[in-house]
Amino acid sequence: MFKLIKRNYVYNEWFWAYVFLAVDLAWSTLFLFYPMIKGVIYSFQDIQLQNISNPHFIGFKNYINVLTDPDWWHSVKISALYTLGVVPMGIIIPLTISLLLAHFRRSIRDFFKAAFYLPGVVSAVVMAMTLKWIFDPMAGFMNWLFSLLGLPTQLWYSGTSEALFTLILMNWLSSHGFNILLYSAALDRIPKSLYEAAEIDAASSWRRFWKITWPLLKPTTLYVLITSVIGSFQAFGGAFFITHGGPMKATEFLNYRIYVTFYQFGQYGIAAAMSVLLMLMVIAVSLLNFKIMGSEVEY
């Protein structure tokens, strides 16, 4: 057997390909697939802190429980509003900045790209704390600025009607670095001659953007759209670090609700059902995006 292997396989690249793939497969089985499947199993079980030793299958009861809970739908609404608030700006802002940057020479462009990306490198906690200070309703920078300009100071994340918008605003201010890199790289990939051809073809700069740049950026936009929809549907940090889901549940995102259900209420089965529902929602929205955007994309 050994001889056989030695003669035929040790120097065979297929053999080594399988070996390396096996390591990866074992890794993802252990740490990704197993917990995922376990989560789906939990979602059909009555399992909670108080009877952790005795879980049993209860069919779709957890799902019915979640879907008939008005608070779940409240969280769906909050997450959807957040997504609607965050995603368009998550495309418009990085695209605008990238388009502006494209006019500068390389060193300046690289400096700004690094500067915009920096917040992404900083730990999420530091970022959240910084934003929390900026929007602090009592001693924050924004309110200082507002009072300096003679505007009425705001409650920001402490107001029931303002909190969600404040979190959206924080996202607008802070989380575009990676998308700027993506868009800048995509813009660099568009051949300059296309713009020159369009210029000779008498296209106005407006039309050049909509007829050349925008369609050619579609794969990038689709990627950004899907990742940011997924990201904002799974938003958690702002609620966790800054608002704790409040005030008055104004920022209780789906993921935060799952977290509370799991860790604070100890209802593991219901939390698992919520996670599965969230996963289905994200998949559905992503597929929808693919359908709408993907049809015309040239890869």
Binding site: S193, E196, A197
Partner: peptide
């Protein structure tokens, strides 16, 4: 500007709009 010169240009890489 280019569009007001009454010219047409054929580029080395053709510069066809890929989409």
């Amino acid at each position: 500007p280019a569009k007001e010169r009454g010219i047409a240009m054929v580029f080395q890489d053709y510069a066809l709009y890929p989409h």
